[in-house]
Computed example of a mutant assay.
Amino acid sequence: MLTTINRIKCNLNLMLFGAAFCSAAAMAGTSMPSDLASLAEHPFRSAEDRARNQHRHPVETLTFFGIQPSMSVLEIWPARGWYTEILAPYLKDQGKLTIASFRVDDGTMQDDRKIFWSRISERLTQRILKHNAHFGTVEQTEFDPPGYMYLGLAQQYDMVLSFRNAHIWNEQGYLLDVFRAVFDVLKPQGVFGIVEHRASRVSEISSSAVEGYLDESYVIAVAEQAGFKLQAKSEVNANSRDTKDYPKGVYALPPTLAMGTVERARYLAIGESDRMTLKFVKATSE
Score class of each variant (00 low, 15 high):
Thr125Asp: 11
Thr84Phe: 04
Leu39Ala: 02
Pro145Trp: 06
Lys279His: 02
Asp245His: 14
Met71Gln: 12
Thr4Trp: 10
Arg103Thr: 09
Asp177Lys: 15
Ala37Leu: 07
Val138Ala: 01
Ile5Glu: 09
His134Met: 02
Pro255Ala: 02
Leu14Gln: 14
Val138Met: 02
Phe179Ser: 10
Ser240Tyr: 11
Ile120Met: 08
Leu16Tyr: 14
Thr30Trp: 08
Glu235Lys: 09
His57Met: 15
Cys10His: 14
Tyr246Phe: 11
Val73Ile: 05
Val185Phe: 05
Thr141Lys: 04
Gly193Asp: 10
Glu263Phe: 11
Met149Gly: 07
Leu39His: 03
Gly173His: 02
Asp274Gln: 01
Ala199Met: 00
Gly249Ser: 06
Asp144Ser: 13
Val73Arg: 01
His42Asp: 11
His131Tyr: 15
Glu272Ser: 09
Lys187Gly: 05
Ile120Cys: 06
Phe116Gln: 14
Thr108Asn: 10
Phe192Ser: 00
Ser208Asn: 14
Thr30Arg: 07
Arg80Asn: 05
Gly136Leu: 09
Glu48Gln: 15
Thr3Gln: 10
Val104Met: 07
Asn53Gln: 01
Thr3Tyr: 12
Leu129Lys: 15
Glu60Phe: 05
Arg113Val: 13
Met15Ser: 15
Tyr83Asn: 02
Ser72Lys: 12
Arg198Gln: 01
Gln231Ala: 07
Gln231Val: 05
Cys10Glu: 13
Ala166Lys: 00
Ala47Cys: 09
Ala28Cys: 10
Ser285Asp: 15
Arg103Trp: 07
Thr61Glu: 02
Trp82Tyr: 12
His197Lys: 00
Glu263Pro: 07
Asp112Met: 09
Pro254Arg: 03
Lys130Val: 03
Thr98Glu: 03
Lys282Asn: 04
His57Glu: 11
Met32Pro: 07
Phe116Arg: 08
Lys244Leu: 02
